[in-house]
Structure formats: structure tokens, C-alpha cells
Simulated scan of single mutants.
Amino acid sequence: MDAFLTATLAVTLAEIGDKTQLLALVLTLRFANKPALVAGILVATLVNHGASAWLGHWLGGVLDATWGQAAMAISFIALGAWLLVPDKPDDENPGFDKYGAFMVALVLFFLAEIGDKTQVATVVLAAEFQSLLWVTLGTTLGMLIANVPVVYLGESLMRRIPMALTQRLAAALFIGLGVIAAGQLLA
């Protein structure tokens, strides 16, 4: 259960102000079919984070315990530092409107997550907790918690969320997890 809760909280906070959240905002302004957008985000995240969690789970099982613990500690701290760098939106004119809200959200969210902070976080969390299912479900729920309100409430919600604060909280969470992992290594 720790894997699920940690993954949910970490990705929810990391996703605030992320490029995929900005993508959700752009898509919600383009498409009226909000349930289709949410379904596309859900499927894209399950596939992307499922593969990422599998990779992390595999890496966690392959690495020597000491080296694995050190790599996880460094990864958590590096990811926390990376979260302090704000994202910039990519080109927001995808030209895929003819494929419908579900397909556009599915393809764009899947592609936007490749190499993104939350994908890296999923790999690291799965390696740390060695729980493919709970990390995938937690990171997916975190993506939905952060993005579904944007889909339904759009721009008015984005003006009320202090992005800098949530990015700092997410950074502190990952750095804290890294420090704990390093402390366990040294103990």
C-alpha cells in the first residue's frame, strides 16, 4: 500500500504544471468530448506507466542490493532537483483533430510521457518498491488526479493553482525519499 500511496502523491504533485497538464488544458479547449479525453489520458498513462513500472521492477531485481539502493537514492534526489525546473509547453498545434478526442489524447499523452518526469518517477518508484501493479495504479491515479480537473475545469482552475508551490512540494518529496534511501544504505 505504501507503493500505491507514494506513487499517487508523487505523480500528482509532479504533474502540476507539467507539459502533459498543459497538453490537457489545450485539448480541453479544442474538444468538447471531455469523457473521451479522460479515457485517452487513462489508456495512454496505463500503457506508458505500466511499461515504465515493468522496467523499474526489472531493474530493481537485477541490480545488486547495495548498488540498486545507491542508484535509487541518487535517482530520487536527481528527480527532485529536476522537478524544480519548470516545463515549457511543446508545440501546441498537433493537427490531429480529425481523429477525435480519444485518439488525440491517447497518442499525444503517450508521446508526451516518454522521457517525462512522471515516467522516470514511475521507473524509480517501481524499482524501489518492487511492485509493478501498485506503482502503475498509483502513478496512473496521480496523473488522473492532476489532469481530470484540468479537462473539466480548464483555464479557470489553472489560474488558482500555485504551480511553483506544488513543484517545490513534489521536489521535496522525491529528495526526501532519496535521503531516506541513502540513510538506509549507510545504516
Rank of each mutant, 00 (worst) to 15 (best):
Q69G: 10
V38N: 11
M72K: 04
K34W: 07
H49D: 12
Q69F: 05
W54L: 15
L63V: 05
T45L: 07
A73R: 07
L23H: 11
L63Q: 02
I74R: 01
A78P: 08
K34S: 11
E92S: 14
A65Y: 03
L55V: 15
G50I: 05
K98V: 08
A78M: 13
A81I: 11
Q69V: 05
Y99D: 01
T45A: 13
P35M: 00
G40Y: 02
G95K: 02
A24G: 07
S52G: 15
D90R: 06
N48V: 12
N48H: 10
A51G: 11
V43D: 09
L84A: 09
A24C: 06
A24K: 04
A81H: 06
A81N: 07
A71F: 00
A39K: 12
V43W: 05
T28S: 15
H49W: 05
T45Y: 06
L46K: 10
V38I: 15
G50R: 03
Q69N: 08
K98P: 06
I74N: 01
W82T: 11
I77G: 09
P35T: 00
L63K: 02
K34G: 06
K88V: 08
L25S: 09
K98S: 10
P89I: 02
S75P: 05
G40P: 09
G40S: 14
K98D: 06
A71H: 01
T66D: 08
T45I: 10
G100R: 00
E92G: 12
A101T: 04
L79F: 09
L55E: 11
A24Q: 04
W67Q: 08
G60I: 01
R30N: 12
W82R: 10
L55F: 12
N93Y: 12
A36T: 08
L37I: 12
G40F: 05
F76I: 05
K88E: 14
P89S: 04
A70E: 02
A101I: 02
T45H: 10
A53I: 01
L55A: 15
D64T: 09
G68P: 01
G56Y: 03
P35S: 01
Q69E: 10
G50V: 06
A44S: 14
G68W: 00
V62M: 05
